[in-house]
Design a protein around this nucleic acid. Structure first.
Length: 717
RNA sequence: GCGCGGUUAGCUCAGUUGGUAGAGCAACCCGUUUACACCGGGUAGGUCGCAGGUUCGAGUCCUGCACCGCGCACCA
C-alpha cells in the first residue's frame, strides 16, 4: 500500500496536481483520445458547449453548479466511450462589461467615456476583459472541469466576429433585419437602447393626477406623468364608453404650460374604461402604447418633447428641465389654473435599466431590428413559429419539462428584437455608408465608407454560440462532427434571453436545432434561502470553498438532491459533509489496498461474494439509467450511499473476520472481491468526484488505463 | 390580468410508470488498543397544506381552495 494512504486525504495538494496531469495528457481533447486509443475513431459523438461566462470579474456558485453538472455528463459519456467534446469560452457581454469598466473609471479617475473617447475606452475594456478572462479560466480549472482548452473561443474574437457578420448579412438579405424608427427603451444613464429583457421593474408609489388640458376641454384625463402632456396629440377613449361618445372625432387647441398643443379625440378598444377617467392622453413619441394607438388613427409621431438626457425640449417654463422637475412645474401650473381635479396615490411598476439603474425613457429612435413575424424565405414560417416548433415538435427537450410552458408563454409574447446598442464595446453593426449607398456584411473597398456607429446586442453573438465555436461559417470537421450539440445546460433564468435566441439564430442560419436537450439548473441560494449578492455580503466564492474543502466536496454538495429547475440552499456545513466523504473513501481504499495486498484478482468468487458483486452491477445499471435520464441528483446520492453505508459499513466490517480467518479460499475470494468493488465504485463516482477517485485509482491493481478519466464505465467493463 | 412552481420528519430536501413514507443534518442512547473519531451501532420523530373525487389501493392522478415563491404583460 502506498504510503500516502497513511495520512488523511489532502484535497488541496491533490487536486491541482491531478488537474495538471490530466491537462498535460491532452485527453480533454477528443482527437487526442482517439489518437491515444482510448476512444474508437468511429465512436458516436457527444458534445456540449460551455455557456460562456461574462468577462466581468469572477465566477460565483451558480457557475460552480453549472460546471459540476456539465462535467458529470461529460465525464460519464467519455467513460462510456463517446467521442466527447466540451468546448470552453467566454462572453464579452457588451453592456455588462462596459458598464463595469465605466463605473470603475468614473470612481478612480472621475472621467466619463466621452472624456476618454471610443478608442481609449475600448483599450481599457479590453485590458479589463483580459484580466477577467484569466481569473475565470483559473476558476474553471479549479472546479475540475474537463474542458478542451485547445478549442477555446471568445464571443468577440475573429472567428466569432466573422460568424456574426455573416449571419447579419444573411438575415438582412432575407429581409428579416430592418432599420426603423420605433419607440425604444432608452436608458438615459447608460446613454443606450436596451432590450425588453434588460429592464427590471421596480414597484414604487406614484401620484395619479386627473386634469383637463384647458377649461373648455370636455374630458378629464388621468396621468402619472403630467410633464409629458405637452407632447400630447390626442385623447383616446373606449369606443363603447357612453360618457365620451359624443366627443369622438372632435379636435381642440390649447396652450398647456406655455406649449401650444392640438388634441384630437379618438376611440380605441385598447383603452380600459375602468382605469382613471377612462380617457388616455396620447403622447406617441414617448410611449409605445400611445405610438401604436396613434398609428391606428393617423396621429403624428413627431412631437418630441424629451431628449436622451431625460430633459424637456419644449420652449417656455419647462425648457431644459429634467422630467422630474418639469413634473412639479406642470402640477403647480395645473393647480394655479384650476385644471387639476384630483390627486391620488397609486402603486406602479417603474421600468429601470438592469445594468445602470436608470429610469427607462421611451423614445423614438432609428434602430436595427429583427422581424420575428415575417416568413423566413424558404421556410414559410416566421422566426417566432420556428422557435415554438423546435420545442413543440420535441426536437428539443427541456428539463424539467414544465419549463416548456414558460418557454411557450414567453415566445408568444415576443416582439421584434431590437439588436442595436449605442455602446462601444461589442460587434460593430456590419453596415457601411457612403452618401446614399449602404453595404452590409464585410467592409467594402474604396474611400469614404463610414461604418454604422452602433454595436450589436450581446445576445446576437451568443445566439450563434453552438456553431460559431465549431468554426462556422467554414464547414469544418468539428462543425460536421459535433453540431447539433447534445446538451445545453444553463440556469432557468436565461431560458428566454439566451436559450430561445440560440434556437432562433440556429433555425435561421442552419435550418436546424442548436442542441437536443436543455437542462436547466436553479439558483444557488445561501443557507437561509436568500439570493447570494454582493450587497447582502452572503456571496460564497467557489475558490474559497474549494481551497477549504476541495472541489470534489463542493461538486457533491451542489449536485446531490438538487433537482433541475429548483433553487437550492448552500452552506459550508453541507460542503464540509462531503469533504468527510472524500476522506471516508480514502480510508476505504487504505483498508482495501492494505488487506488485499498481493491478492489474486482472477480468484473465483464464493457464491456469497459473487452476489455482492452482482448487487453492485445492479447499482451500476441503475446509476447509468439515472444519468441517462438526467437524474444526476439521484445517481450521486445512490453511489454515496453505497460507498459509505454498504461498502464501508457492512461489507468491510464483515470482511474483517474473513480476512483474518483460516479459510484461505474464502479469504482469497474476499480479497479479490474488495478490490473489484472498490474499482467499480471509483469508476461510478468519478464523474461526480473526479479528483479523489483519480488519485486512489492511480494506486489500484486493477488500473487498466493511464487515467480513471478515460477508463471504462462499469456497465461497459 | 395571463402563466409557472412549491407546501412531505425539528431544518434542508428526495420520492422516476399509483402498490406498506426516505436521505442528509440536528436530537437522544450506546460503543472506541483503530481502515477512517472527518467513526460505528441504535432510538425517536411524519393525519405527505386543506376539502372533495377517481381507484381494490393516492404523497403520486382529477377538481376546488388556502398560503409561499417566481415569470410575463399592463401600469394612461
Amino acid at each position: 500500500m502506498p504510503e500516502k494512504f497513511l495520512r488523511p486525504y489532502d484535497s488541496t495538494a491533490t487536486e491541482s496536481r491531478i488537474y495538471t496531469a490530466w491537462e498535460e495528457s491532452g485527453l480533454f481533447n477528443p482527437d487526442e483520445c482517439v489518437a491515444q486509443g482510448v476512444t474508437r475513431a468511429d465512436a458516436p459523438s457527444y458534445s456540449v458547449v460551455l455557456p460562456p461566462p461574462n468577462v466581468t470579474g469572477r465566477l460565483h456558485m451558480g457557475h460552480a453548479l453549472m460546471l459540476a453538472v456539465e462535467d458529470i455528463f461529460i465525464r460519464y459519456k467519455r467513460m462510456k466511450g463517446f467521442r466527447t467534446l466540451w468546448l470552453p469560452g467566454t462572453d464579452h457581454a457588451a453592456i455588462a462589461t462596459q458598464s463595469v469598466v465605466e463605473k470603475q473609471i468614473k470612481k478612480e479617475e472621475g472621467l466619463s467615456r466621452h472624456d476618454l473617447g471610443r478608442d481609449e475606452l475600448l483599450k481599457r475594456i479590453e485590458t479589463f476583459a483580459h484580466e477577467s478572462h484569466d481569473t475565470i479560466i483559473g476558476q474553471l480549472k479549479t472546479m475540475g472541469a474537463s474542458l478542451d482548452w485547445s478549442r477555446e473561443a471568445f464571443t468577440l474574437d475573429e472567428t466569432r466576429s466573422r460568424a456574426v457578420r455573416t449571419v447579419f448579412k444573411q438575415m438582412s438579405d432575407a429581409g428579416l433585419i430592418y432599420r426603423g424608427l420605433r419607440i425604444v427603451n432608452w436608458d438615459p444613464k447608460g446613454q443606450t437602447t436596451i432590450s425588453d429583457d434588460e429592464i427590471v421593474y421596480e414597484e414604487r408609489t406614484a401620484k395619479l393626477y386627473t386634469f383637463r388640458y384647458s377649461k373648455d376641454f370636455p374630458i378629464p384625463v388621468a396621468t402619472t406623468r403630467p410633464e409629458t402632456k405637452v407632447g400630447d396629440v390626442g385623447v383616446a377613449v373606449h369606443p363603447d364608453d357612453a360618457r365620451y361618445k359624443e366627443f369622438v372625432g372632435k379636435e381642440y387647441d390649447a396652450v398647456f404650460c406655455d406649449v401650444p398643443i392640438h388634441i384630437k379625440i379618438v376611440a380605441d378598444a385598447e383603452v380600459d374604461p375602468a382605469f382613471g377617467t377612462g380617457a388616455v392622453g396620447l403622447t406617441p413619441a414617448h410611449s409605445r402604447v400611445d405610438w401604436e394607438i396613434a398609428d391606428r388613427h393617423d396621429l403624428s409621431h413627431e412631437v418630441i418633447i424629451i431628449n436622451e438626457y431625460a430633459k424637456m425640449t419644449v420652449a417656455g417654463r419647462l425648457e431644459g428641465k429634467k422630467t422630474s422637475e418639469a413634473r412639479e412645474t406642470v402640477v403647480e401650473w395645473l393647480t394655479s389654473e384650476g385644471l387639476l381635479e384630483k390627486e391620488e396615490n397609486i402603486v406602479q411598476n417603474v421600468a429601470t435599466a438592469e445594468r445602470t439603474g436608470g429610469i427607462v425613457e421611451p423614445l423614438p429612435k432609428l434602430q436595427w431590428w429583427i422581424d420575428v413575424n415575417k416568413p423566413v424565405p424558404g421556410r414559410e414560417k416566421t422566426l417566432k413559429e420556428l422557435v415554438i416548433e423546435a420545442v413543440r415538435s420535441n426536437a428539443i427537450t427541456i428539463i424539467p419539462e414544465y419549463f416548456e410552458k414558460t418557454y411557450f408563454h414567453w415566445v408568444e409574447n415576443l416582439r421584434d428584437w431590437c439588436i442595436s446598442r449605442q455602446i462601444w464595446y461589442g460587434h460593430r453593426i456590419p453596415v457601411w455608408y457612403r452618401g446614399e449607398e449602404a453595404v452590409v456584411g464585410e467592409a467594402p473597398e474604396g474611400e469614404g465608407w463610414v461604418q454604422d456607429e452602433d454595436t450589436l446586442d450581446t445576445w446576437f453573438s451568443s445566439g450563434l454560440w453552438t456553431f460559431s465555436t465549431l468554426g462556422w461559417p467554414e464547414n469544418t470537421k468539428d462543425f460536421q462532427t459535433y453540431h447539433p450539440t447534445d446538451l445545453l445546460e444553463t440556469g432557468y433564468d436565461i431560458l428566454p434571453f439566451w436559450v430561445m435566441r440560440m434556437i432562433l439564430m440556429t433555425e435561421f442560419t442552419l435550418g436546424t436545432i442548436p442542441f437536443k436537450t436543455v437542462y436547466l439548473h436553479g439558483l444557488v441560494r445561501d443557507a437561509s434561502g436568500r439570493k447570494m449578492s454582493k450587497s447582502l455580503g452572503n456571496n460564497m466564492d467557489p475558490l474559497d470553498v474549494t481551497a477549504k474543502f476541495g472541489a470534489d466536496a463542493a461538486r457533491m454538495a451542489l449536485v446531490v438532491g438538487n433537482t433541475p429547475g429548483t433553487d437550492m440552499r448552500m452552506s459550508e456545513e453541507k460542503i464540509k459533509g462531503y469533504s468527510r466523504f472524500a476522506n471516508k473513501l480514502w480510508n476505504i481504499a487504505r483498508f482495501v489496498l492494505d488487506s488485499a495486498n498481493g491478492a489474486d484478482l482472477s480468484t473465483e468468487l464464493t457464491a456469497g461474494d459473487a452476489e455482492l458483486l452482482s448487487a453492485l452491477q445492479t447499482l451500476s445499471r441503475d446509476v447509468s439509467t439515472d444519468i441517462d435520464e438526467y437524474r444526476i441528483y439521484m445517481a450521486a446520492e445512490k453511489i454515496y450511499h453505497y460507498a459509505w453505508h454498504e461498502l464501508a459499513d457492512k461489507i468491510l466490517e464483515e470482511s474483517k473476520p474473513i480476512l483474518s480467518g483460516s479459510d484461505t479460499a474464502a479469504r482469497a475470494s474476499r480479497q479479490a472481491l474488495l478490490v473489484t468493488l472498490l474499482d467499480r465504485t471509483l469508476r461510478l463516482l468519478h464523474p461526480f468526484m473526479p479528483f479523489v477517485t483519480e488519485e486512489i485509482w492511480q494506486s489500484m491493481p486493477t488500473k487498466d488505463a493511464k487515467f480513471l478519466m478515460v477508463a471504462r464505465w462499469p456497465d461497459a467493463v
